[in-house]
Nucleic acid binder design. Structure first.
Length: 600
RNA sequence: CGGGGCGUGGCGCAGCUUGGUAGCGCGGGUGCUUUGGGAGCACUAGGUCGCAGGUUCGAAUCCUGUCGCCCCGACCA
């Protein structure tokens, strides 16, 4: 491809001010993407080549384990989503799905994911166990109405994703295929030149039993992952389970009610009264909004030195009540408190907060749903709010094990915690970018959408399902986050838009010009992805651009053209080889082979 | 939705406090010079200063409203 006749590179001299993280800055500066609106980007020709390379790698690996590519619609009828009971949650609750009405007033959603559509189609074409297993996938644009799009392609409202859905006759078959996909994913990310870790994850709104995320480790990542150095354990912080540190026991001499004026936080109480955070039980109040429209107040207790994991809490509440939980919010808004509660001692709440405090005329459930974390329920003596403003008190022999309290894990695991009893390994923490997620959905969707097959025994049974996602555009950006330097991007060769760029330094010199054409054509004829920077610009400009856009190899055609000699430069480590054009192709092929093999 | 910031040519920004009808660098075009690390000189095109009201003889500048964008938080297949 020639720069002059195919597309303007569109590189920028200055870094656009809107971009915060390096990968986003480089994508814009090097002309890969253009912002059209918040979270909406155009993929320029050079970007599309990256996307296509990633897609090809994904297709190769998935096809090799028996997956089949297809293409599904993006405009989904609301009816289908109502059958799976996700319409409300995805529009009213989380509001993650763009939705609209057609001229007849029929409702539609712009697809953020495709379980409903694929399941309904699969149920039509799969009749017998003899046709199983099946796995379909597609690579296309997804839509999500993000509350706050950010970091370029990392969290955008339109993004390209590979999503796959598998169908099985049994849970065992699903589990083994899930493993196979997990392996294929590892191959894919390795083939893309990325360093990833697989972690246990929460399955979120998609639901299902088992779920694993693939993370690119990078400081710019939005997720926290906890892992042991040996690799024996790795999980997303949303899911991670650990043993909390030992609490420091309270002195025997302390008892009764304590005056704690204005001391609303754990820190203030500790500082003013000489306590340790682990001697306090923190009580946080939430309001749970259910799909059945009922609103349930929640009282969550945890040891003072620990933090509540709202994802765990969300899932727990979801299981505790019959209706789907749409939203969980902290109760802290003054108006909401005044409207629904009487003399609410915010900042001084204890685990025994009375149900009477909920106003009779409030729309809330009249009883607190009381939840206590393991870290708090074993304390024999602790400090907590006295349910009276400016007072705390000492709780002794307080029993959480009455049936009023649900005891469970609602705690954030953290760096330094032990993984489990009898294992001395400590958790470490890193930031990660989620680029892949696989789920064992089980029969959740097939049940709702009535997707059945005839099994060996002649019985109609629900299909077992798995679903598997890869963020294609996210991979591209994550790769830059992991592979760049002061000068710009350093693409892993596997997903670079071009393998090599030919840079003639002076096209006015007929010898250089002839040699350039000769070299370019040799590479073209040998099916190498080569870009020819045939712009009539100064050499320095072309060098800078080549470095910025990050092509792994540069061939400089210059002064030594008279001797049929050129330079082959490796972008990443800046090594230069001066070689004659006779040996150029062979040398390039062996050098690039090394690079392909090292990274994949 | 809460907190903070910003909207001035394609990009990065100044001007606003103290009103007088727009400027700098990069980029674009033309010409000459230059030619292995984002060149030099000259000429040139390009902006109703986000939008709408208001104050004023006069508004990019002051006031009110509104829209948009970015960052932090909440939220997150």
């Amino acid at each position: 491809m020639r720069v002059t006749t195919s597309f303007p590179l569109g590189t920028l001299r200055d870094t656009p001010s809107e971009a915060e993280i390096i990968s986003h800055q480089l994508l814009l500066k090097a002309g890969y993407i253009r912002r059209v609106n918040s979270g909406i980007y155009a993929y320029m020709p050079i970007m599309l080549r990256v996307i296509e390379k990633i897609s090809t790698i994904i297709e190769r690996e998935l096809n090799s384990i028996g997956c089949t590519k297809l293409l599904l619609p993006q405009l989904h009828p609301a009816d289908l989503w109502k059958k799976s009971e996700r319409w409300e949650g995805y529009t009213a609750g989380e509001g993650i799905m763009f939705n609209l009405k057609d001229r007849q007033g029929k409702e539609f959603g712009l697809a953020p994911t495709h379980e409903e559509v694929i399941t309904s189609i699969a149920s039509e074409i799969i009749n017998s166990y003899k046709q199983l297993p099946q796995c379909f996938y597609q690579i296309q644009t997804k839509f999500r109405d993000e509350i706050r799009p950010r970091f370029g392609l990392m969290r955008s409202r339109e993004f390209i994703m590979k999503d796959g859905y598998s169908f099985h006759s049994s849970g065992n078959d699903l589990a083994s295929f899930y493993e196979k996909v997990g392996n294929a994913y590892s191959n894919i990310f390795k083939s893309c030149g990325l360093q990833t870790v697989g972690v246990e994850a929460d399955s979120g709104a998609i639901g299902g039993a088992s779920s694993k995320e693939f993370m690119v480790t990078a400081d710019a990542g939005e997720d926290s992952i906890l892992f042991t150095e040996s690799g024996s354990y790795a999980a997303n912080i949303e899911k991670a389970v650990s043993i909390p540190s030992q609490p420091i026991p309270l002195k025997d001499s302390i008892s009764g009610v304590l005056e704690t004026p204005q001391q609303k936080t754990i820190q203030e109480v500790c500082k003013n009264n000489n306590f340790e955070p682990s001697q306090i039980v923190k009580v946080v109040v939430f309001l749970a909004k259910l799909e059945s429209k009922s609103e349930v107040p929640i009282l969550a207790c945890i040891r003072g030195d620990q933090h509540i994991n709202e994802v765990k809490l969300f899932n727990l509440i979801n299981n505790l009540h019959n209706s789907n939980l749409l939203k969980l919010q902290k109760i802290e808004d003054k108006n909401i408190i005044e409207k629904n509660l009487v003399n609410f001692p915010l900042g001084f709440i204890g685990p025994d907060l009375d149900n009477e405090i909920i106003k009779a005329d409030s729309g809330w459930n009249k009883k607190w749903t009381r939840i206590v974390d393991h870290s708090a329920c074993n304390l024999s003596k602790f400090i907590s709010g006295a349910n009276k403003v400016n007072f705390h008190k000492v709780f002794q022999e307080f029993s959480f094990s009455s049936k009023d309290y649900t005891i469970d894990d609602i705690r954030n695991a953290k760096k330094g915690d032990k993984v489990k009893n009898g294992n001395d390994e400590e958790l470490e923490e890193k930031k990660g970018i989620e680029i892949g997620h696989i789920f064992q959905l089980g029969q959740k969707y097939s049940e709702k959408l009535n997707a059945k097959f005839s099994d060996k025994d002649g019985q109609l049974k629900n299909l077992w399902m798995g679903c598997y996602g890869i963020g294609v555009t996210r991979i591209a950006q994550a790769a830059i986050e992991q592979n760049h330097d002061q000068k710009g991007i350093c693409w892993p060769i596997q997903i670079s838009p071009f393998e090599v760029i030919v840079i003639p330094t002076n096209l006015k010199d007929p010898i250089q010009k002839d040699l350039t054409e000769q070299v370019y054509n040799v590479f073209l004829n040998n099916k190498i992805d080569v870009l020819l920077d045939d712009r009539d610009d100064r050499a320095g400009v072309k060098f800078k651009d080549a470095e910025l856009i990050g092509i792994p190899f540069q061939i400089i055609i210059g002064r030594d053209s008279v001797n049929k000699e050129v330079e082959l430069i490796c972008r990443k480590n800046n090594t230069k080889l001066k070689i004659s054009t006779d040996k150029l192709l062979k040398t390039f092929i062996s050098e690039s082979e090394i690079m392909y093999n090292r990274d994949s």
